[in-house]
Design a protein around this nucleic acid. Structure first.
Length: 919
RNA sequence: GGGUCUGUAGCUCAGUUGGUUAGAGCACACGCUUGAUAAGCGUGGGGUCACAGGUUCGAAUCCUGUCAGACCCA
């Protein structure tokens, strides 16, 4: 047989035909499809269609990303996961409106704006901050759309919108109404140079030399009362006037006994932590001269000690943050001058002192006349001198350390307490904890995370000394400027004005204007604080879900990264419990962070330095959005998500398989009209039944996996189905009948019937993930409407059984064994193509495969893709291979008996019949 | 230091209530096909299931401890 002879029969075959391109060209094609979707208002039509069909609501409430920076892979992961939920729930029949939002206020934006040009008026800072936010909203929105995320992109919610701002203020009013808001002092990072509070981000670290001193506090109560003294170590002597406590570590071992100074012979009975005994001696000159008693830190709890120069007792408390790195293991606690100190002070009821004014000078509260009006850093010397005079100074050294400085004025930072506003958590906590247990947490351990935070969180500090935010609507009367008016009705009036004018009015109009508007006595001044931005986003269930006509509370799902247990999930819960005594969500899903390939934290600047892009744009512009979406679907979102370009590229292979499988199915269906050509279920051949039985399971598994947000399981199931069942088996085996049978042979039509169902189901099941590709394939299957308007396939109960599957797995066993033998025969040079093989199959007499091979010879030949086989007896399955005697039919290239038909002596029986039919 | 979680092939992952020889895909090597062709098919190497104990007739799976990593808290 010659190549020519074979080629001459080519026109008589039913070779696959399709225009669906093999090459995806996603980078070019996706934007075109996106434009088409948007010009046809696809999102709106999907939502309307589900609503018209009476679909149950499913509300995924979008957590607003910060409008700052480009969309990186972490943001993309979050948004695509949300989209997978929306699309899969929609295709499961739910009505799923999706209103995306952005978090607009806050320090990172203000910081950038102010850094660009310093010394701006508040109103100008706000104008520029808004412009900045809007710029990034547009950038991010373009990325999200390009990723194929469906939603109401024309009408997102923005926390800077006047209506939204008004609702934030109303939420504040509700807090006030319920008696939850109070004012108290709390330490903040304070720049006396700029006379303002700073945020962490505005602090620069520089080396600085400070005197570090050892100070004794004689113990005045407990077992050691009058016998010994605690020694503290501090680099900020100026905070000693505000000392209210001394912290020990509960588990550390402390030593108590007599110490003598090496030079002057001074004797002291002191308490020092064991690990630092040597260092203490070295630095102070005091060495142990008597027996030392040992005890754990917790033994001293509740004792008191005499303040070295004020008529006051300091409480001995326990704290975990005490270390043995430097000092004495006894930490000076000034709750007004440090974050740890503040918390320790709260927990132990120490009270709070912060006798320092805006300029960094001591106030009268300091308690020592000679210090009043003195700058704190000028007071170190005099305080040390005083300590020495009182005999409280045990040692002194110069200490060089890295110390925070103001990025604007370059002056060193001090911790100083200023009045702040708080929400009393005590009144909300119990309800919040009960609500946590009514919510479904995914993964389940999320429950413990948020429960722990809510259980232990202190009162919520809601005031910020910032400009780019929603004003905290309080007022200071002219005659009593220390006591602000915290009033719900006033706040509501401010909200009314904000509803139309935005909160810029607060910064642009003067006090006189506000007094007139609100009916306040002349001379009343408004406050200068803004609200914590967690109030902004935490109010979204009020400002968005309660207000938006398509939405309602509680949401069915919140879906964010795991850090939001402490962030948005918690702030939303607290606000919701305050306004409606209920959680704002029924279920909360958290995913891990995107991390480096070796599971190290992924920082943007480092990644860029290393030439490892992490911007989503890089990936959808290089590989296409569908590859990115497929990557998201393949990932284990419960834990950290390792990411790198190499890992990412691994998903291109499954993508190509999905695409090629869709393509070959389409191509095999080019002449198939389901209405005309489909065969009845009973007319399907066993292998068709088998693939439909497999499809039944695949549909059921995918639907269940989608419902549980297990997209990775969908990915695995579909990938296996396409790679093993379809590509390697079904499509390969049915090639012969598809190409060589008569076009309308029952056998071919049977397979087309099955393929049609498989294609239809596969395209729908893939649609949430491969949003572009599934839609493209759907279009080539001559549908006029998008696949995204469709619903998922239902498992067909007619194929719920496994009769055909049982048969096929028998065949598979034979095929696997045969393949090894055939491969050896080919390697040994017996022949070149597996179709030339003739098998001798040895089987035990009782093997069930015997009857299968005997009764279904033709199917067996088709399945094994060989020329011939003979059955012999044997102890176990064993197959030997020889070349067949049959000639190769030039039309179908199978080696079957030829010459049965005298008109076509070179053809096999089937091909001769087909040719005869064509004439 | 505390809490939560993770640890199966070089890589990404399956592994159902404990039950035959721990499975896929990618990558690699070799072969077939040229009628899915910038495709398709096959074969092969590669695993002490992090480590050590324990429960059991039997453990990747259940229990305890150790190590490593991640996140949150401190």
């Amino acid at each position: 047989m010659s190549q020519d002879q074979s080629a001459s029969y080519k026109p008589t075959l039913n070779l696959p035909q399709t225009e669906f391109p093999m090459r995806a060209d996603l980078v070019k094609r996706e934007p075109v499809r996106l434009k088409h979707w948007e010009s046809h208002d696809l999102y709106r039509r999907i939502v309307d269609r589900r609503k018209a069909a009476g679909g149950e609501d499913f509300i995924l409430h979008d957590g607003p990303p910060f409008a700052n920076g480009d969309v990186h892979m972490g943001t993309a992961l979050n948004k695509v996961l949300k989209d997978l939920v929306i699309k899969s729930r929609t295709m499961a029949g739910y009505h799923c409106p999706y209103i995306p939002g952005w978090d607009c206020h806050g320090l990172p934006i203000e910081f950038k704006v102010v850094k660009e040009s310093r010394g701006l008026e508040p109103a100008e800072i706000r104008r520029r901050s808004e412009a900045f936010a809007r710029e990034y909203i547009d950038i991010q929105r373009e990325s999200f759309r390009r990723l194929g995320v469906f939603g109401d992109w024309e009408h997102p919610y923005l926390t800077l919108a006047p209506e939204y701002e008004a609702d934030i203020i109303r939420v504040f009013a509700t807090f006030v109404e319920k008696g939850l808001v109070y004012q108290s002092k709390k330490p903040v990072l304070w720049s006396y140079g700029a006379q303002t509070a700073l945020a962490e981000a505005e602090v620069e670290y520089e080396d600085r030399k400070d005197p570090a001193i050892f100070v004794k506090f004689p113990i005045t109560s407990g077992d050691l009362a009058g016998k010994s003294s605690l020694v503290i170590w501090t680099t900020t002597p100026w905070t000693l006037p505000a000392n209210l406590g001394i912290a020990l570590h509960p588990q550390f071992t402390y030593l108590q006994g007599e110490f003598t100074h090496a030079e002057d012979g001074r004797r002291e009975n002191l308490v020092v932590v064991k690990e630092l005994l040597e260092a203490f001696t070295e630095k102070t000159g005091f060495a142990q001269t008597g027996d030392l008693a040992e005890f754990k830190g917790e033994a001293l709890v509740g004792a008191t000690a005499q303040h070295p120069f004020l008529d006051r007792q300091s409480k001995v408390i326990l704290a975990d943050f005490v270390t043995t790195e430097t000092g004495t293991g006894a930490v000076h606690i000034a709750p007004g001058h440090g974050a740890d100190d503040y918390r320790a002070g709260q927990e132990n009821d120490l009270g709070l002192l912060s006798p320092v004014d805006d300029a960094g000078n001591f106030t009268e509260e300091v308690g020592l006349d000679f210090l009043v009006g003195k700058h704190v850093f000028d007071a170190n010397g005099p305080i040390i001198k005083l300590l020495a005079e009182k005999g409280a100074l045990i040692g002194k050294e110069n200490y060089q350390h890295s110390y925070p400085h103001c990025w604007r004025s370059k002056t060193p930072i001090i911790f100083r307490s200023v009045p702040q506003f708080f929400i009393r958590i005590y009144d909300l906590r119990q309800t919040a904890l009960e609500e946590i247990d009514r919510v479904q947490w995914l993964p389940h351990w999320g429950r413990n995370r948020i429960y722990g935070t809510v259980e232990s969180r202190p009162d919520w500090c809601i005031s910020r000394q910032r400009t780019w935010g929603v004003p905290l609507p309080v007022f200071y009367p002219a005659d009593d400027p220390e006591n602000p008016l915290i009033d719900a009705d006033l706040a509501r009036k401010v909200a009314e004005l904000t509803e139309t004018g935005g909160t810029n009015l607060w910064f642009e109009k003067d006090d006189a204007w506000w007094c007139e508007q609100l009916g306040l006595p002349a001379g009343t001044k408004r406050g200068h604080d803004t609200l914590d931005v967690w109030i902004d986003s935490g109010s979204s269930h009020v400002a968005v879900m309660d207000r938006h006509p398509e939405l309602h509370t509680p949401a069915d799902l919140y879906l964010e990264a795991t850090d939001q247990h402490r962030g948005w999930f918690q702030s939303s819960l607290m606000v919701s419990v305050a306004v409606r005594d209920k959680a704002p969500y029924k279920a909360v899903l958290t995913h891990g962070f995107v991390v480096d390939q070796d599971k190290k934290k992924l920082s943007k600047s480092e990644a860029e330095k290393a030439g490892k892009p992490i911007d989503a744009k890089h990936f959808y512009e290089k590989y296409g959005a569908d590859i990115l979406r497929l990557w998201v679907s393949s990932v284990d979102w419960q834990n950290e998500v390792p990411f790198g370009e190499d890992l990412f590229k691994q998903t291109t292979e499954p993508y190509r398989r999905f695409r090629n499988v869709l393509r070959i199915l389409l191509a095999n269906l080019y002449d198939f009209d389901p209405d005309q050509d489909a065969v009845a279920d009973e007319a399907l051949t066993p292998i068709d039944r088998w693939i439909l039985e497999r499809l039944h399971d695949v549909i059921a598994e995918c639907r269940a996996a989608y419902a549980d947000y297990e997209f990775r399981k969908v990915f695995n199931t579909l990938n296996q189905f396409c790679a093993v069942d379809l590509s390697a088996l079904y499509v390969d085996i049915t090639k012969d009948r598809m190409y060589c049978d008569a076009a309308d042979s029952p056998r071919r039509r049977a397979s087309q019937t099955a393929m049609h169902r498989v294609f239809d189901a596969l395209a729908r099941l893939l649609a949430p993930i491969l949003a572009y590709t599934a839609d493209e394939a759907w279009e080539f299957a001559s549908h006029s409407e998008s696949v995204h308007l469709e619903t998922f396939p239902e498992p067909d109960p007619a194929f719920a059984g496994a009769e055909a599957t049982g048969q096929v797995s028998q065949f598979e066993r034979l095929r696997d064994t045969a393949q090894v033998a055939i491969d050896e025969a080919i390697k040994a040079g017996k022949f070149r193509k597996r179709e030339r093989a003739s098998l001798e199959i040895a089987l035990p007499a009782d093997d069930s495969a015997r009857s299968l091979l005997g009764d279904h010879r033709e199917q067996a030949l088709e399945f094994l893709m060989v020329s011939d086989f003979f059955l012999v007896d044997g102890d176990e399955l064993k197959i030997s291979v020889a070349e067949t005697d049959h000639a190769e039919c030039p039309r179908c290239r199978r080696s079957l008996p030829v010459g049965e038909n005298p008109d076509h002596p070179e053809l096999c029986g089937r091909c001769a019949e087909v040719i005869a039919g064509l004439a």
